[in-house]
Design a protein around this nucleic acid. Structure first.
Length: 671
RNA sequence: GCCCCUAUAGCUCAUCGGUAGAGCAGCUGACUUUUAAUCAGUUGAGGCAGGUUCGAUUCCUGCUGGGGGCACCA
């Protein structure tokens, strides 16, 4: 992979790689064999945290008095993960281990681990993947920590990770080397969890409604179903050019002919076009077809899909605000109690003052954590211009940590009370904060545990109403609460411009000009009508709106309205000025379809490469007879952009299409 | 396809045309409860090709990659 020049004069990266290879060799001299399989499955780090809490609860509830008894039966756990931070202190070393579920501190001590294994610790680098066996405990500062008894390096990372605090900032690198982005940025990882959940939610909803998921060919002899230039490839065995599909439409409709009444496909389609924040040459579409249904049925389905997807992505936020009221109240009362207790200890002897102090500070930290989490969304977007998952992650991690420490401290207080045979601590009335009654240490402990439980359950994505999304960093909020607005294009034009286009049909060119537009020469009335919509209505639509009744001239695949053949039974769902879905009552008249194909052919002959080609087989299918049907297409990537507040399609694609970089050329040339 | 912005060390950022600085990571040393650990020392760099200039990372041109906007679309 390295170029010749790099061998002559090693660059900084080569030096770093060599350094790590040296350590790898040293490890192997100690009998370590990295890059091997692992004998037992490790415990996920999140479970290690939970295990510690359960263990502590047990400890306190059983009123254990002998400390040594506690340490004897502490269970030994094996965890595994990537080394993300390293704090070496000579004869002791702290690291942070991260797996998909969580992050856990691990403490290596020379006296516990032993001389030789501790030398292995010294050979660890950021990015290494290791397994550690030990017992879970808490450090003096209260951080849950695995005290290591054994270390098993699993993988030696030979290249440095991006900077530990700022992460990978270079957008190009984030797209090209997504694995680095994912390793170093929990936000990025999280976004693709959301993507997965959203797609799953769409499938689940359609499955529940008895739609069959179908897989139609990607390689096609005649790419059809949309207006786009296809990618061309070659089938060697048959000496025949084939194309990558540009839509799934025509094959799904063949299935309607074949007797399937409800089908859908979530599939990758390919269009030989440029790149932009909204376009990637390959992208994912949902296409749904339902026999004996019309575009109004599709409207309802479309709305249901979006709402279901939003809820699936942000599952815990059905309440308008993510911190449950009772948690806030519990924290408030804990704060009051703790403050009172602290003032009391100034006057009275015998109270565990440090514990009380800790409770007081921790509760107030927790309150501010939660405030922080609440305001984080707006502030983060404002400052960084992108969605706030990572900031939330951090804020929430702090909140969890403080709640965990609070839990710890309140249990110490409870333990102290048990030892001193105190059911409750009496508070002189003059010291009590308003509304504070005699304190039962047990109750504080239980409350703290409850707070922690709730926080533990919470995902960082639960910060807000799932149906309120932000358009852009400084843009308006988008309200996805159903029902979505439904309005005909004519009404929307009248609303925006005051023009009654239906009544003034024939004078639209004048109106287009009057409003600053430039009509295409020879444009039909329907096209002028559509131009008014595109220029004066669509960009201003923020909240989801079903725009219905498109002019026939711009809707070659849709059925005409029965009562007015200038318009079709079609809608597009527009959100934030962009088209998110497109649906109509499908054209099923083979004669009409043939005529429209012929028109497309004439356009091709005039040089429009994107015009449809005639698909004789599809026409034959229609001649067999396709039931009346509603059909809808939806851009899945755009749906995900909307729900995750991502400004660019590349942010929601794991591996967006990138131009070959010069480095890639060199690598290819060597092969 | 057009317009604007951008490229400095493995990563994140500095540097009125005059010897290229820092933090993290790395390396050497100290440190057995650290939290972006700390302390002392230390290695390492201006995308490529031209031009202007006594002198260019800095100014200009071209190329290449990237970002943003327009156009096209989903």
């Amino acid at each position: 992979m390295s170029t010749e020049a790099a061998h002559d004069r090693p660059n900084g990266l080569d030096v770093l790689r060599q350094e790590r290879e040296k350590k790898l060799a040293l490890m192997q001299e100690h009998g370590i064999q990295p890059f091997r399989s692992m004998a037992d499955s490790p415990v996920p780090l999140r479970e290690a945290h939970a295990w510690l809490l359960r263990e502590e609860e047990q400890h306190i509830l059983e009123h254990r008095k002998k400390e040594d008894e506690h340490s004897q039966d502490t269970e030994v756990l094996t965890v595994a993960g990537r080394v993300m931070q390293l704090r070496d202190q000579g004869k002791s070393c702290f690291i942070h281990l991260e797996d998909f579920s969580d992050r856990l501190q691990v403490w290596f001590r020379k006296d516990i681990l032993g001389e030789e294994p501790f030398e292995i610790v010294k050979l660890l680098d950021l990015g290494d993947i290791i397994a550690v066996t030990g017992t879970v405990m808490r450090t003096r500062r209260g951080e849950p920590t695995l005290l290591a008894a054994e270390l098993h390096p699993l993988v030696k990372s030979l290249l440095p990770l991006p900077e530990k605090y700022h992460g990978l900032q270079d957008r190009e690198m984030r797209y090209r080397k997504r694995y680095l982005d994912l390793v170093s940025d929990p936000e990025s990882r999280h976004l693709f969890v959301l993507r997965s959940r959203i797609v799953r939610a769409v499938r689940t909803l359609l499955d529940e409604r008895k739609f069959f998921e179908m897989e139609t060919p990607v390689l096609q002899a005649i790419p059809g179903g949309g207006e786009a230039k296809p990618f061309t490839t070659h089938w060697n065995a048959l000496h025949q050019d084939v194309y990558l599909r540009i839509a799934t439409e025509l094959h799904l409709k063949r299935l309607l002919v074949g007797g399937f009444e409800r089908v859908y496909e979530i599939g990758r389609v390919f269009r030989n076009e440029g790149l932009s924040t909204r376009h990637n040459p390959e992208f994912t579409t949902l296409e749904v077809y339902q026999a004996y249904a019309s575009f109004t049925d599709m409207m309802q389905l479309c709305e249901d899909i979006i709402v279901a997807a939003a809820h699936a992505a942000w599952p815990l936020s059905s309440q308008s605000y993510w911190v449950p009221e009772e948690v806030r109240e519990a924290i408030q009362s804990c704060t009051d109690v703790a403050r009172t207790l602290v003032t009391m200890t100034h006057q009275q002897h015998g109270y565990p003052r440090d514990t009380l102090r800790a409770i007081a500070t921790l509760t107030s930290s927790l309150v501010s954590d939660l405030e922080h989490v609440r305001t984080t969304v707006g502030r983060h977007v404002e400052q960084h211009g992108h969605h706030p998952v990572v900031a939330l992650d951090r804020a929430l991690r702090n909140a969890r940590r403080h709640a965990s420490l609070l839990h710890h401290a309140t249990e110490s207080l409870f333990e102290w009370a048990v030892l001193n045979r105190l059911q409750s601590i009496d508070i002189p009335e003059e010291d009590a904060a308003p509304g504070v009654l005699p304190v039962a240490p047990r109750e504080i402990a239980v409350e703290a545990a409850a707070i922690l439980d709730v926080l533990e359950e919470m995902e960082s994505d639960a910060e807000q109403d799932p149906l309120m999304r932000l358009a852009t960093a400084d843009g308006p909020p988008i309200n996805l609460h159903p029902p979505f607005r439904r309005a005909s294009m004519a009404d929307l034009i009248q609303e925006a411009t005051g023009i009654n286009a239906l009544a003034e049909w024939g004078q639209l060119e004048r109106h287009v000009r009057a409003l600053g537009g430039t009509p295409e020469p020879g444009a039909e009335q329907g096209e002028l009508f559509f131009q008014l919509y595109e220029e004066h209505v669509e960009p201003n639509i923020i909240d989801p709106t079903f725009v219905t009744h498109y002019p026939t001239v711009v809707s070659p695949l849709a059925l005409r309205c029965m009562d007015d053949d200038r318009f079709t039974e079609r809608f597009e769902l527009v959100v934030n000025g962009r088209e998110l879905a497109n649906a109509f009552t499908e054209l099923n008249d083979p004669r009409d379809q043939r005529e429209r194909f012929n028109e497309q052919m004439r356009r091709r002959e005039r040089g429009n490469e994107e015009a449809h080609r005639i698909d004789e087989d599809f026409l034959e299918a229609l001649e067999i007879g396709m039931p009346p049907a509603g059909g809808m297409g939806m851009g899945i990537d755009r749906l995900i952009m909307l729900l995750t507040e991502s400004p660019a399609i590349r942010d929601v694609l794991l591996f967006p299409m990138m131009r070959q970089s010069p480095g890639d050329h060199a690598a290819t040339a060597e092969e």
